[in-house]
Nucleic acid binder design. Structure first.
Lengths: 342, 342
DNA sequence: AGCGTTTAAGTAACCGATATAGTTATAACT
DNA sequence: AGTTATAACTATATCGGTTACTTAAACGCT
């Protein structure tokens, strides 16, 4: 079976022109007459030419590629974020190099290194829950590679960010619960190093303060964003026989952990323990009971992020950073819709 | 702010050795004395050297990169497949280029082209539901790039595949339903061009035949793998007032579509209409009611696929193709657990 | 006719590495 | 002592393109 992909020079030889002419023709360079262009293009197609990505990017010093770093992928939130990033990239003729940190700071660091060594034109990142060392981001900046932080944002000055109104959304959810009559409210929060953990906690606190309710720190955990954390935290309180009436969770998986734990110990949601979470996942509608939540418009997040990034790539001299906040909405379903503890 | 990433030659100049020496030292080539190696490595670290991926791959003619093509990403099945592919790749020091076809054959084709032009060492693919033209796979083969088909497999001779026991799994589910007492069983199937559509349909048929039940073609659809398809098909039968007692769906999203439709027209699952599906998604446990299904061990699929692929990459001369079947299991939860129509 | 400008192509250098084929010393062997 | 290995480097070509500069012919204008 014939092998070897053909090169510019193969086409050039066949037509008895220089490789540069072929290169220019295929890139629609004005140097070449339209007649020659047509000829070259047709021959190139005929021979099944595909440019060598590596060679092209090496010599042109640009990759037309965007690197993406996310902490997780098998989660609705990131899955749909990534999906729409791909859509936007495809429309703009960019390739995407997707990397997954699996919530591991070290892996994240390595991935960013790789992306730099691949000479991506820009980076889109949602940092891991463990990321505490921000030096790598300085490196990226020093290299002059535009980077946009989405949703999970480190505490650094002068960076481009796209995030949701975490504090406001959390506030909305908790205030709603309070208005229903809830007073014993717990919060399974994320790590406070990351904005989404910190801000959602603050929103929770805001609501409690506004309505003069004390925050019982025994009901507040700071542990992450995954199911296991939700499960473990619930179990801890359950064993101590110290459960609040309602728990507001920092993410949807954490709430799912509570669902698992509750069903295991035969507690009914929302009768025995009520739950509301930050973040939507479509299937929540079909959970038993349907889980109420604060929705984040994922496609907006990725579209705006790409917008900011592409803009930065096109105008490298533009130094001022953008910080875009996406609004949230309260979506009430089968939890946190009535108070029946009394 | 200092810019420009440093090159081999920068290190070479600083130490007054040749670039080749530096290159070899960093790759632990036996030509270089361990003393010199140590020195060079430390200086390289100090200067923050990262090799230029493009240059390296261009000159060495290998990329240490695997291209992955999946139809969807915001779905549990593919999400977790991808996640474990990343794990295996990471362990083996391979980079992953992930592309998403969004169930679009044309996009899939373009992505494969791109992967070829990136000179990936191998390709892992789950084809889109629309893919009917297999010529691109011939191209890949002709280029000598190993390719392994996962789960969704085209009808071509002599290819490497890793798939689940679709027919057997479907059979198990449907026979279980029949044993419960169901006779009016519908099947929302996938496209029969793809193995998972075809085989699951055959498994359904096998079970019906074995128990001498007629297959009512009005209850059988061939439409795809998504929610909308499940929703639409259900609604069609509902409007015709021609619903079976139980529907076996080709995927979990299709079943979810039924959940949506049923709740919309106030029909209760499993009392009014019962459902069972192929494919697990973890959250199914928390659906209302919990959805029974045939489980596919996703991590096995990706691990075996990577195994086969890495093997093919290492032994290019090994021509015989592998076809690995992964077993399935019936997971009963809140649907398809009793027959109460009579 | 003479001279500057455009058009359409070609030449040479380079992008940042690696592969391959030398080149020195120095040690080893007969 | 003379030949041959071996160790430790270096020089050069190359990977498949692109960029920047040149050249040759055709064109336009005074």
């Amino acid at each position: 079976m014939a092998n070897k992909s053909i090169r510019l020079s193969d086409i050039a030889k066949k037509l008895d022109v220089s490789t540069v002419t072929v290169s220019k023709a295929l890139r629609d360079h004005p140097d070449i007459s339209s007649q020659t262009k047509k000829l070259i293009i047709s021959v190139a197609n005929e021979m099944g030419y595909t440019p060598n990505f590596m060679a092209r990017n090496l010599s042109s010093r640009k990759s037309n590629t965007i690197g993406v770093v996310v902490p997780k992928i098998a989660h609705f939130f990131f899955g749909s974020i990534i999906e729409s990033i791909y859509d936007v990239a495809f429309r703009n003729n960019y390739e995407i190099i997707l990397t997954v940190s699996q919530e591991d700071a070290e892996r994240e660091r390595k991935h960013i290194q790789t992306l730099l060594s691949m000479k991506v034109d820009g980076i889109l990142i949602s940092i891991s829950q463990e990321t505490k060392d921000y030096s790598i981001f300085e490196t990226v900046k020093a290299r002059g590679v535009p980077i946009v932080f989405m949703d999970r944002i480190p505490k650094i000055k002068n960076i481009d960010t796209v995030f949701v109104d975490d504090r406001g959304g959390a506030f909305k959810a908790v205030e709603h619960a309070i208005k229903l009559g809830y007073t014993k409210i717990g919060h399974f929060a994320g790590y406070s190093e990351i904005n989404i953990g910190r801000e959602r906690y603050l929103g929770f606190e805001d609501a409690m303060k506004k309505h003069n309710l004390p925050v019982n720190q025994e009901w507040v955990f700071h542990g992450g964003f995954g199911e296991k954390y939700g499960y473990d935290s619930f179990m801890k309180l359950y064993k101590e026989n110290n459960l609040p009436d309602l728990i507001f969770t920092v993410t949807y998986p954490v709430a799912l952990g509570i669902y698992m734990a509750a069903s295991e110990v035969n507690m009914k949601i929302p009768e025995d323990i009520d739950v509301i979470c930050f973040g939507d996942a479509k299937v929540q509608k079909f959970l038993s009971p349907p889980l109420s939540c604060v929705t984040q418009p994922t496609n907006l997040i990725s579209e705006r992020s790409m917008e900011v990034l592409l803009n930065k790539i096109k105008n490298p001299e533009d130094k001022k950073s953008q910080n875009i906040e996406i609004p949230t909405e309260l979506m009430l379903r089968g939890t946190c819709i009535s108070y029946n503890k009394a």
